[in-house]
Amino acid sequence: MPTTRSLLAPGRYVQGRGVLADLGTYVAAIGSVPLILADPVVRQLTEATVTESFRQAGLAVRFEEFGGIPTAAEARRVADVLSDRGCDVIIGLGGGSTIDTAKAAGDNAGIRWVSVPTVASTDAPTSALSVVYSEEGVFETYRFYSRNPDLVLVDTQLVANAPARFLVSGIGDALATWIEARAVQRANGPTLAGGMATHTGIALAKLSWDLLWENALPAVEAVRSNLVTPAVEAVVEANTLLSGLGFESGGLAAAHSVHDGLTVVPHTHHLMHGEKVNIGSITQLILEAAAAEEIREFIEFTARLGLPTTLTEAGLDHVDDEVLRMVVEAALAPEETIHNLPFSVSENDLLDALKMVEELGRSVRAEAGLPEPRAPQEERPPVPAARMA
């Protein structure tokens, strides 16, 4: 059992409307030969602002196109580019996959790295780890580093300009932070930071949860109109900073293991990271025998946000047990974080919990007057976002 306690955090966190215009000033304090990793869409949206910001800071602008999937091979390719150009800092500009690849490439090249998320869809930007996938988008492993990013900078206007689904996915990822951290704490289990959780890490995980329950619904409504409101600022902070610190220094459990299991079957590849995690959160609550009211409130809340709460929405409504057992087997792999729960989980336990997600998801939606879940090939009507009674 671990006996030490540890907390990890980035060197600096900056958030606000329009802060991308200040990126050059912050980067100049970290390195003099930066490289920006971004996909073509993000580059088109941000290049003018970044170029002017770097010009004012006396930095040259060098972009490199992200290949699209955070594989080990892509990290090696980008690292070669860094070495060839003599770069001393890499900036991951975009979503979680871009940022995870920038961290991996920076580590390979032995240089510093910066996270600039343009969406608040995951808690990857602050962490000292990357998630590595295969070319087919299947989870392979977590890759850990000796340090966190030197800088995380989030322009909330960029977040508000992105499709609301990105913010909603980030909420699904962040809501799992407290569910998992409290389970790891009960088990006195290890965190990703090494050792046991600090009281600070647990408190930050709970604060993320509290901010989301208060602000998530109005924030999503605001982002649908590209507005930056106090609720949006709160949710961006919860999704990015608080969830990032909370998951890394509080610990992961079953929710992310189920996510990893869901990646092994092609049926779920239409879902974003936080959407799969939400299926995992419900599964974990079922495994824990959480209070029925707690599970129902969570399902209704996340359904109103537009997160999937049934296997149907994950594309697994008519599959046989063989497919679900593939998910179960991957989620229960020896290295998976589901083993951080304060009890052991068998294959049949997890299989039945996954099946129960469908039953509970449907019944809660019916009781709340929400539309029936639709399979992914069907066009889904927007879910009412009114506050729960």
Rank of each mutant, 00 (worst) to 15 (best):
R325E: 14
W113K: 00
A105I: 14
V116A: 00
L245A: 11
G67N: 12
A375I: 01
Q377L: 13
S169H: 05
R147H: 13
T46Y: 04
V265L: 02
V50D: 00
H269Q: 11
I179T: 10
A124E: 14
D352N: 13
A231L: 09
R85D: 01
G369I: 04
R17D: 07
G250L: 06
V41C: 05
L93M: 06
A72W: 01
E248Q: 09
A120G: 08
R304Y: 09
V277K: 03
A389N: 11
P190W: 05
I91Y: 00
A162E: 05
D352Y: 03
F166D: 04
K355C: 11
P376H: 07
V50N: 01
A291W: 08
W113R: 01
R304L: 04
V345F: 12
A181L: 03
Q44L: 02
T118Y: 04
L175T: 14
A181H: 01
L23N: 02
V383R: 07
N108W: 01
L8H: 15
D155P: 05
F247C: 01
P218V: 06
N161M: 05
S146W: 12
N239M: 01
V327E: 13
S121G: 09
R62D: 03
T156R: 02
Q15F: 05
K276S: 06
A222R: 10
D123M: 08
A255H: 08
E378G: 12
E180A: 14
E358Q: 14
P382G: 13
I202S: 09
V223W: 03
L271H: 10
P70Q: 00
E313L: 03
D22A: 08
T98Y: 04
E294Y: 06
S134N: 08
V265R: 03
V33G: 00
S169Q: 04
L211T: 10
L245R: 03
N188W: 11
M1W: 05
K276G: 09
G189Y: 07
G92E: 03
L211F: 13
E180Y: 10
I99H: 04
L167C: 07
F166H: 11
E347W: 01
A73H: 14
P371Q: 10
R43M: 10
D349W: 05
G67H: 10
T46L: 02
V41G: 07
F343S: 13
G86S: 04
P384D: 12
T263E: 10
G92L: 02
E136M: 07
P190A: 14
K206S: 14
S225C: 13
T4L: 12
H267C: 10
E367F: 04
A104K: 04
S32W: 00
S344P: 03
V364H: 06
I91D: 00
G137R: 02
E294H: 14
E180D: 10
L59G: 02
L82N: 02
H318V: 11
I99M: 05
D173F: 06
Y13S: 01
V89Q: 02
T122V: 04
